[in-house]
């Protein structure tokens, strides 16, 4: 190459560029590139819409209807229209801060969440791509817009885990259906009354609490940094315990030390890119309280445990010999029990 003249180089590179164009176009058309475009669409697309979500459970379903106003890249306001218990409640999200206004309890909760970095987001997408195959389905119309459908198939089990529908032009995800392992629908999300606009009133994303409301600050980001900072003996983080069984494709993606209601926990988050599992461990007598939930009594070895279903998620909690454990994830009950029994 060094012997080539400049015009030859320019000509050759032009040929190469000309060739690369269709290659990139192919990549953009691929299901995986499309999926990623869908994930990133809210960063560049502003809109208003009404979104319906339904979680199907063993004993009924839970439905919410939310009006969304989104200004790219990261300001979102959600106003609950249904069910009646939430009517009028709002959540304003600005970057990693979330402001929840609960009109029924006159409470204003400010949450500072983790700020996801690009690397972890990319790695988690890589995890998804490693564990799931995307297949194109039939094109449809949703909320008056043409959409492309994709099914995400678990590579290890061959099971369809999720179907999503992306708007053909903006790639915004307009609908999503999550399936249980037995093929039953676990949850469904669908956009209605979609309108693309970035002309939203200035006060849409106001973050001030209404007068007379109790303001609660809930700093997730700080809570996670609390390990080993001169706490009392009982606040020492517990020994990390690794499950010997995890569903195929699951990897540890995050280790944090949150404090829930003043109690320090070790929190391990595992995922295969779509499905996930949290293992909470602490050294107090604090398995999760299941009052208000329909709990099923089960055994982990010799010990009593409680199993709770919450829409797509199941929760399993028990007191071990030296620690208490709470497992949460969109996994089946047998999977959770198997993981629990493999904790050593």
């Amino acid at each position: 190459m060094n012997r080539r003249s400049l015009p030859a180089l320019v000509c050759a590179s032009a040929c190469a560029f000309a060739f690369l164009l269709p290659l990139n176009a192919n990549a953009a058309d691929s299901a995986l590139a499309l999926l990623q475009a869908g994930v990133r669409a809210p960063l560049t697309t502003s809109y208003t819409a009404q979104v319906e979500r339904i979680h199907f459970g063993a004993r009924g379903s839970r439905q919410t209807l939310v009006r969304i106003e989104h200004l790219a890249p990261n300001a979102t306001r959600r106003t609950y229209l249904a069910p009646e218990a939430f009517y009028g409640n709002t959540i304003v999200q600005r970057g990693n801060r979330r402001y929840e206004c609960d009109r029924h309890h006159h409470r204003f909760v400010i949450r500072v969440e983790h700020d996801p970095d690009d690397l972890s987001t990319a790695q988690n997408f890589a995890l998804l791509a490693r564990n799931y195959r995307a297949e194109y389905g039939q094109d449809e119309m949703i909320a008056g817009y043409p959409v492309i459908s994709l099914s995400l198939i678990n590579r290890h089990t061959g099971e369809k885990t999720m179907s999503i529908w992306l708007e053909r032009n903006t790639h915004l995800i307009l609908s999503k259906v999550v399936f249980h392992r037995d093929g039953a629908v676990a949850s469904e999300m669908r956009f209605e009354k979609l309108r693309y606009t970035n002309k939203l009133p200035a006060n849409t994303f106001s973050t001030s609490a209404p007068s007379g409301y109790i303001v609660v600050t809930n700093n997730v980001a700080n809570r996670s940094q609390s390990a080993g900072s001169g706490e009392t003996d009982t606040n020492k983080p517990p020994t990390p315990i690794d499950p010997h069984f995890l569903p195929e494709g699951f990897a540890l993606i995050q280790t944090t030390y949150p404090t829930l209601q003043g109690v320090p926990f070790l929190h391990l988050l595992y995922s295969d890119g779509i499905r996930s599992l949290s293992i909470f461990e602490n050294q107090h007598n604090t398995p999760a309280g299941v009052n208000g939930f329909h709990a099923q009594s089960v055994k982990i070895g010799e010990r009593d445990a409680q199993l709770v279903a919450d829409g797509a998620n199941n929760l399993l909690t028990w007191q071990g010999a030296h620690s208490s454990f709470t497992l949460v994830g969109d996994l089946s009950k047998p999977e959770l029990l198997k993981i629990a029994n493999s904790l050593r």
Binding site: L128, Q254, G273, S276, A288, G292, D310, N313, V328
Partner: peptide, 17 residues
């Protein structure tokens, strides 16, 4: 149990979908 469910959902913020 709701606190654990919330915390689990919060931690999922970096998951693509």
């Amino acid at each position: 149990a709701a606190a654990f469910l919330d915390r689990h959902t919060e931690a999922m913020v970096t998951m693509p979908l």
